[in-house]
Design a protein around this nucleic acid. Structure first.
Lengths: 325, 325
DNA sequence: CTAATTTATGAAATGGATTCCATAGCAAGC
DNA sequence: GCTTGCTATGGAATCCATTTCATAAATTAG
């Protein structure tokens, strides 16, 4: 396959001139420019981008650390991110890590290796210390609400969002509130757990261990939750559920079992997913696509300006009132 | 930042020896190996992968052309693909193209540029001719059922799958069958449209233009479809719907409007999505994760064996009987 | 004890572009 | 007429690791 040297030889110019043409640099006469262009055409030449990456030290690619793509929460973030990346002509390297530490580390190593220009961490179990180590090698943005200021982040305040969901239920008169969450030990889960018990304490309600239900990831889990509720002696009259998919599964199962919503059981979800819209689910919108887009913009900015200072962007949540509360 | 030369100098060996250590090649004495390893540690050295990519001509990365990540159909394929890629230690470059021709082409150009070792095309509007041109530069696999044999593919026979769905409805006694599809001009849509009219012709049923409903992508579209049906003078008593999400939206809206399923309206979906499981939706499973995984395996195989011959893998669909038919 | 392997090591070529630096022609300014 | 500045052009260094080839020492085979 042809290279720049051969083009230069055939067009009767120096490699420098070919490079100038390739990169639209000034100071090339029209005659030589067309000569080069013709030769490129004739030899069906393209740049070997690996050589470009080597010499420039940039790859126009960023990696995304994500446990699993096929979860609405994540795929929406990615979608927003991908859109921005496309606009900026950046490549997106998708690293589905399933929270495995070695895999997550490997991605950060890519930054050190110069394979990528930056990293967006959508969700991880890595400690802040580990991540911080790698900030020396390039920009890193995390989409989690750690109290952390050592590296850049985009986040919604889970504590506050969750609390306002609880407050909303409370204002509507629901006093027995249960909580369904995703991964029990996720970083945002623990924040919400605190928000939950703080709220109970503040409003003088007792804490029922069994009203806090873990590992609800999809519609089927939501259905399972309903049956767990039905088995309880004392049942909550409202549920706050992280993830509209889960809420949807629960609502459907409720319909099947003659449980009226919201009369027998009020439900508020998170994330404003399409299925929730169909069901008239009241939910808290977390602006997920915006989250991905913002994460990319931060990274991009840092790459352009070679700026190492951490940046933090808080996104606003909002309650979308529909008919399940 | 340190490079291999510096390591060599400090460890008192040649660069060749350092490279040998780095790549676990034989014929390095234990003494020198540890000297090199220590120096690497001391200087906090890592390879510049761009140099590796340049000299080896491989990047251990493949690109995926996909219109949109945030569609269940696509994200499930990607998930299967990503899992296999992880196992093989391959990077996945996600290219959300939104069917834009320039973007799709750009990805194929990456293959020519040697930025990637192969391409998986999940869905595209590019012509087979354009794609074929690029097979010269590396392995390409397409996840569509074109009648095309010039480049590799993984596919389910949409014609046959769709027809067996219709047959299933027909066997259950439904004679007025309507059809909801996604993009009207998608490659699989046109195959299904033919299957649909072939089936009507074969069973001597008339073709109702209005029973063929286009552009159904999500739950809300499904809801909209129900209302369209309600407005019709003569209604179908069964629907075949490409995509369980759409079917779900329709079913939910049917419940709200007192339409009994399947008594008033039978529904069969496609893709076996979680929401369908909750609703008891009868559906045709298209083995999407397997599709992604297989696509990767084909590419991987071709990269390893430098094999340019097109390979074709047909995946089997199956009907999952639940309670909406 | 010699011939054939095997082990160990390094010099140099290779992959393919970008960019700094040097040089030269030519026009404008004073 | 002389300096300054702009346009054009190319040589050579640079980015960094892999791999081929050559050579030498140490074993093993016969």
């Amino acid at each position: 396959m042809a290279n720049i040297k051969e083009i230069a030889r055939m067009a009767g110019v120096s490699v420098t001139t070919v490079s100038r043409v390739l990169n639209n640099h000034p100071y090339v006469s029209e005659v030589k420019r067309t000569a080069v262009l013709n030769t490129i055409e004739k030899l069906n030449y393209t740049r070997n981008m690996n050589a470009v990456h080597l010499i420039t030290g940039r790859t126009q690619a960023i990696a995304v650390i994500i446990p699993n793509i096929n979860l609405f929460y994540f795929s929406v973030i990615i979608e927003g991110l991908a859109q921005e990346a496309l606009l900026a002509q950046y490549r997106l390297i998708l690293c589905q890590t399933d929270y495995r530490h070695e895999e997550e580390l490997k991605v950060l190593e890519m930054l050190r290796n110069k394979e990528i220009d930056g990293v967006v961490i959508v969700s991880t179990r890595m400690s802040s210390e580990v991540i911080e180590e790698y900030t020396a090698y390039g920009p890193i943005v995390i989409c989690q609400d750690r109290g952390e200021r050592r590296f850049s982040s985009v986040y919604i305040e889970h504590y506050s969002a969750f609390r306002s969901g609880l407050q909303y239920l409370s204002d509507k008169g629901y006093q027995q509130i249960g909580y369904c969450e995703g991964r029990q030990h996720g970083s945002s889960s623990s924040i919400r757990q605190i928000a939950f018990s703080d709220f109970l304490a503040a409003t003088g309600q007792p804490f029922h261990e069994e009203w806090m239900i873990h590992d609800c990831m999809n519609e089927e889990d939501g259905g399972r939750v309903l049956h767990e509720l039905l088995k309880m002696k004392k049942r909550p009259n409202a549920l706050i559920i992280t993830g509209d998919h889960v809420a949807a599964g629960l609502i459907i199962e409720a319909w099947k079992n003659g449980i009226r919503i919201p009369e027998d059981l009020a439900v508020i979800g998170f994330d404003d997913q399409p299925i929730g819209r169909s069901l008239g689910l009241t939910t808290i919108d977390n602006q997920l696509p915006e989250m991905g887009a913002t994460a990319f913009r931060i990274i991009y900015d840092k790459i352009q300006n070679n700026d190492g200072h951490p940046v933090h962007r808080k996104l606003e949540y909002r309650i979308i009132e529909r008919s399940t509360v």
